[in-house]
Design a protein around this nucleic acid. Structure first.
Lengths: 191, 191, 191, 191
DNA sequence: TATGAATGAGAATTCATTCAT
DNA sequence: AATGAATGAATTCTCATTCAT
């Protein structure tokens, strides 16, 4: 009661995004209804429609807002010389970016089928392709290309599939990062 | 097309599974309604309920039937000595098994959020854990453990995320397999 | 296993009626599906249709078979002189008949709305009317007529609404009977 | 007919209850679908779900609203001395309350099997027990206890089972009441 | 900046019933 | 005397969305 209602003022849009993402990641996109989002926020469904035109728009807005760092990262990557050092740095920064937007990526990881149908799908694929094109050398043998894709993939999966491996989360992130960097290195040398 | 109606006799159950999996993989589990499945089969929804008690039961039955080879594989893995050779063979066979049940794994890959809620989720997690426990040495450094998880993951992802890389599918599968085998080798030596 | 299957021979019709009535009384008519009946009998639904044309027919047949004694009773009542003694005997015999077909009457008591829609409804109403006409003197004051209806009703209700009153069932039946007889007596004298 | 649409505003919830009870009493609970209720109200099924979470909730709400007077009556009964006069007054007031909520009690009378499964069942049984405990003397002989139950029961049944007895409804209610009062008196005197 | 009331479309599921074998 | 396979019609319920206020 103290401040809560006052704080709410003016940032409902933001709060909708937060709660929505939280629920999408928890239970999946299709299983999450606008009623649930509204209930958790203690507003009516209609209020959501004041801020967003559709359920999809909520999702797109979350995606757009949260992947800005990655877009920037790609921009940066493109402007750098294509050295191994650049690739390593890219992987490092990407790992960082992923862990900062973990819920979004968990959502995307676990709802690929849905994401594919949404507009997001394409933007995301584009981004992935751009990233890949920076790391991969298209002249390289297929295995080395796979290594690069695998590096990126390892980063993605790392966040969720290592949960039942013992160890401190940050330590695990470092281990994952190391493996990914390694894969990129091997791909680079292999040529 | 030839003798359609006659052929239908007695294999409806099987046909339901086929069509269901097809659609689940195509459009996602939640987006696929029993009406659609029934329509594509040219039977009524009620016919589906003659063969399966619920939508989930259809899914479980598909899973159970199609992952039998993997269960066998794990059985085999456990009975072997824990050598590098065994691990390699396991990875090879797993890659094979995956590509044989590709639609199922595509479905599971792309509908993780859903799968988590279904009974399947647990059986699958168990299986993944068993597999991991055969390949991983729990005494090994964290990075090496990650390498093994990454190997398995690379196999999984390989099937879907390499689709827009040019090259013949079988050739790509071989490349993926090579990278995975490599990761396991590194994990083994790393210790 | 011993004899069961053999015994089953030739009396399936009867067993269907038994199980159906059992379930109707337990869970209500509408809530009881033919599937359930068939399952409890370990036959298929189609088997029920070999013996009865519809669900309603099952019900009607149960009713007809089990209320034969009451029909006879009414026949008897009509042939007797309209003395108080006759009325008492009628009530006594009716009480007996009710307790012998308890499940049927429980079913009818608890599913009046349904029974009304079924054919049974009318036959039953007819029977009740006949009974009433034997006990009631249409010239008697309204209160005395009510007393007679109440007597019959007390018998009906007695079976189910006294269940949570302590005491031995047969003893309770006797008490109920006594009250009913009493009501009839009062109605008779009151005139 | 006059200003229909305007009048509708803001009392839909109430109208749903009315129509529902009407239909439940007319055709039985199970036979009454939400579609029918909605149609008779000229709204969509979904509108019902805006006001009530389930079909059962509609029923419970009707029950709760309409049996308030009886709850009050029991409260009153408990606060009075346990004299014969109190018992008589209780019976009189109960008769009145019943006739005021006639459709509800008709519904409950005729759908006992259903009511038993619903939450209502228990609340109702509790109420009946409370009522009984006020009227009955647990030390009294069984027959006298039966007389009391029979009195209450006569009131219940009176409403529906006397319909085909000739005479003015209010006159019949009085006759029923008289018989019930009489039964209580006899029980009290220990006849 | 929201809410209350409602809708239309569609979901999963259940049921009594049928019929060729 | 019974089964296996299927149907058509219905049911309860959920969802994203709309709009007057």
């Amino acid at each position: 009661m103290d401040g809560t209602k006052q704080q709410r003022r003016g940032n409902t849009r933001q709060r909708i995004q937060d709660v929505a993402l939280e629920l999408f990641a928890e239970q999946g996109y299709e299983k999450t209804s606008l009623r649930e989002i509204a209930e958790r926020l203690e507003v009516t469904k209609a209020a959501l429609y004041y801020h967003f035109k559709t359920k999809e728009e909520i999702t797109v807005s979350i995606f757009t807002d949260l992947t800005k760092p990655i877009e920037d990262l790609i921009e940066w990557g493109r402007s750098q010389p294509q050295t191994l050092e650049t690739k390593h740095e890219l992987v490092r920064r990407y790992s960082q970016a992923l862990s900062e937007a973990a819920p979004l990526f968990r959502f995307m990881q676990e709802n690929q089928a849905t994401v594919r149908e949404l507009q997001i799908g394409d933007s995301f694929k584009d981004r992935m392709r751009s990233l890949r094109d920076i790391i991969i050398d298209p002249q390289a043998p297929l295995t080395d290309q796979v290594r690069c894709v695998s590096a990126i993939f390892t980063l993605h999966a790392g966040m969720f599939f290592l949960q039942d491996l013992e160890g401190d989360p940050e330590e695990k992130r470092q281990a994952v990062l190391e493996v990914a960097v390694d894969l990129v290195t091997q791909a680079h040398q292999g040529a």
